[in-house]
Amino acid sequence: MRSKVVLRRLFRNNQARYGFVALVALVLVAYVGPYIGKYDWTEKDFMAFLSAPSADHWWGTTSIGQDLYAVTLRGMQKSILIGLMVALISTGLAAIVGAFAGYFGGWVDRVLMWGVELLLVLPSFLLIAIISPRLKSGNWLWFVVLLAAFSWMITSRVVRSMTMSLREREYVQAALYMGIPRWKIIFRHIVPNMSSLLIIDATLNVSSAIIGEAALSFFGFGIQPPDVSLGTLIATGSDNATGYPWLFVFPAGLLVLLVLSVNLIGDGLRDALDPGSNS
């Protein structure tokens, strides 16, 4: 079984093992941690504004008296969710668009690739920055869609060129002559044969989406209040980072750990799935 071989290779890989352990720990902290803390993320402690970390408020409090521990974990949940969803959507889109363009060729290819070029030229930062604060009631799912819509293009070009070589393989030709519809061939024979590329891409997309969300939220163009994410917390924290370092250090540290662990897994996956490559 190939998947067994891959899993064994993955867990023999030190990088991937550390990354996996760290990620599981972080997810546990994000989702179980709030039950251990004393405060809820919506609670405000009017007796403690901007207080330093203490036995009562483990990670200190914000300028409006929120418990930073609770708020940060809440933000981390959102960041993890955004990372996963954006990665799934954008890798899925890249696979579909790339495979259709590569398999059908001709005008389908030209139209799709032209769209890809256009999206690459369009300033995604500007578009998301203008659109996202104007979304009704700060619905963060729309933000996920926006972020995903601008992160699939380069992968789809790789998928396209891989599809063009897969198209000529005997088993694909055979399926075509057996009368299987072309869209079915794409989903049954082409896309599964690129699974290693897609899995690696999806993993690395998780970390870049988490960074992308944080980057946009840094300027207030991402997740809108009262919702919090690691990005919005880092943004408010960095304004007062010199005077009240805990406001910055905890969210930023968790963001870096999260991205680092996902990247470690992605790199390990690449070694396990694609032993020939060392890129």
Binding site: A214, S238, F248, A252, V256, L260, N263, L264
Partner: peptide
């Protein structure tokens, strides 16, 4: 390089600013 790649530029820049301030 792996660790640095995981630090977004806005975190790195702020960290440098805090360190310099201190």
């Amino acid at each position: 390089s792996f660790v640095l790649m995981a630090i977004p530029v806005f975190v790195l820049a702020t960290l440098l600013a805090i360190a310099t301030y201190n």
